[in-house]
């Protein structure tokens, strides 16, 4: 793997996919979700502040508002995607053992999807489930 015997040029190796087989997709999606998260985080903070001290019925009514519900859905989904990408980089930096690394990256994906799905399900149930 670390030999100089490859006939492929360095440019040929990185063109298109690179060693990670995914090009700059990871980097770019991290930036796109980061931009989205700036606006969505501020919206999330406003929503949470507006819910302080409210009883259950009022909180459900507020969270069922279409604009609030959509902002919360976008915040939790964009946040889950962003945190999955970020944690993957941390795992790849610090976990040296190849099998452990693959398992950790996989567990990271499962965790992010599970948390995102739980938030999305709860938000949809609040809006539609009664």
């Amino acid at each position: 793997m670390l030999s100089n015997s490859s006939m492929r040029t360095p440019l040929g190796r990185v063109r298109g996919l690179g060693s990670a087989k995914s090009g700059t997709g990871h980097f770019w999606l991290q930036r796109v979700t980061a931009v989205a998260n700036v606006a969505l985080t501020l919206a999330f903070l406003c929503i949470v502040i507006s819910l302080i001290g409210k009883p259950h019925a009022a909180a459900v009514a507020r969270l069922s508002n279409p604009i609030v519900a959509i902002l919360m859905l976008l915040f939790t989904v964009s946040g889950a995607v962003h945190m999955r990408l970020g944690m993957q980089v941390i795992i790849e930096d610090y976990v040296q053992h190849e099998v452990l690394k693959i398992l950790a990256v996989m567990a990271n994906t499962f965790f992010a999807i599970a948390v995102g799905a739980a938030c999305a399900f709860a938000l949809l149930k609040i809006s539609f489930g009664g």
Partner: peptide, 17 residues
């Protein structure tokens, strides 16, 4: 820290639901 903190948001929304 935020990675773990998302669990708090999920639990809060599940409680509301």
């Amino acid at each position: 820290a935020l990675y773990g903190g998302t669990l708090l948001i999920a639990l809060w929304l599940i409680a509301a639901a």
